[in-house]
Computed example of a mutant assay.
Amino acid sequence: MGLNIENLSGGYAGNSVLKNISLAVADGEIVALIGLNGAGKSTTINHVIGELHPKQGTITLNDVQLSAEPTVFKSQIAYIPEQPILYDELTLGEHLHLMLAAHEMDNSTAWNRALALLKTFRLEDKLHWLPIHFSKGMRQKVMLVSAFMLDAPLLIVDEPFLGLDTLAQKAVTNLLRQQAKAGRSVLMTTHLLTSAAQFVDKFIVLHEGHVYFEGSPKALAKKYGLAMTQLDDFFDLIQGAGIDEIK
């Protein structure tokens, strides 16, 4: 089943961004939305998490339609935004307990999973710290722990490697692979295509609110005449390109 977006059009007040797009993220699949700034990646994510209401189209996750059953739909999602969102007055431990309680999962099994993730990201001794003491990278790690500990059917990650050191980037890659291996779906955005090509199943190129390509990393490289090690050059290739040139 997984995530299915069909004929979605929408955007912000007075600004139509997405134009009749359709895409899917199957169970056990890792899909990366890619494109230049303003292509519609974040707008797509904001529609999926229910922050924006579509002008037309449907969004379904495991046979649950967002418009019909929003609470049930959203309960299946773990979301990691590009910019970490933390409460200044809550410690790291309180943040995690609050997240688990919100998903009715504040039990020993889930907490042990959270502790294991804290150790992975070298935060196990920071449970009593307040966000004011966290660096940008540490804040991002808190968001990663908060999401991965939920074992949600759909994980949405906006730029997962932003602000992370090399060890944390490797940990995230391994965790994403584990999510997919367990049969869960992953939808992400990234500008690091060469790195992402090592573990994503599919790239979806958005350009001016349209889907212009959908396929494997190898297929993307072949279509645009790039070596697999040159995929990061993709954005330079399409920068300023006309519609006909990127189809």
Rank of each mutant, 00 (worst) to 15 (best):
P153N: 09
Y87C: 01
S42C: 00
H191V: 03
G10E: 10
I5E: 07
Q140R: 01
N20Q: 08
P84Y: 02
G50V: 12
N7K: 15
L66W: 15
T173S: 11
A180L: 09
E245N: 07
L175C: 09
H191Y: 02
I49N: 04
P81A: 09
L18F: 13
T190H: 04
I45L: 08
N112H: 13
L52S: 10
D88Y: 13
A114K: 06
S75K: 11
G137S: 07
E159N: 05
E51C: 00
N7H: 13
H128T: 10
D165K: 03
F148E: 04
L175P: 08
I59Y: 12
H47D: 02
M143E: 04
M228Y: 05
A26V: 09
A24L: 12
F121T: 05
V200K: 02
M105K: 13
A219G: 06
S42W: 00
I21L: 13
L52P: 01
I5M: 06
A221F: 14
V157Y: 00
K202P: 00
D233G: 09
Y79Q: 01
L61T: 05
N112S: 10
I204D: 02
A171F: 05
T71I: 12
L220S: 12
S22W: 15
H207C: 05
P160R: 02
L66E: 04
A39K: 11
A78Q: 03
L98F: 15
V186A: 01
A152K: 05
M105D: 10
K126W: 11
L92F: 14
G209R: 11
L52F: 13
M138I: 08
L164N: 03
M1V: 12
G137R: 00
T43Y: 10
S42K: 01
A101Q: 07
Y212L: 12
I77R: 01
M138E: 11
V142T: 02
T109Q: 14
F203C: 05
G10K: 07
P84R: 02
G242V: 05
E6C: 08
K222W: 11
N174S: 15
I243H: 07
G183C: 08
Q169F: 04
E69L: 13
L61K: 10
T60G: 04
M138N: 05
T43L: 07
E29M: 11
K41Y: 03
V211I: 15
L123R: 08
Y87G: 01
L192Y: 04
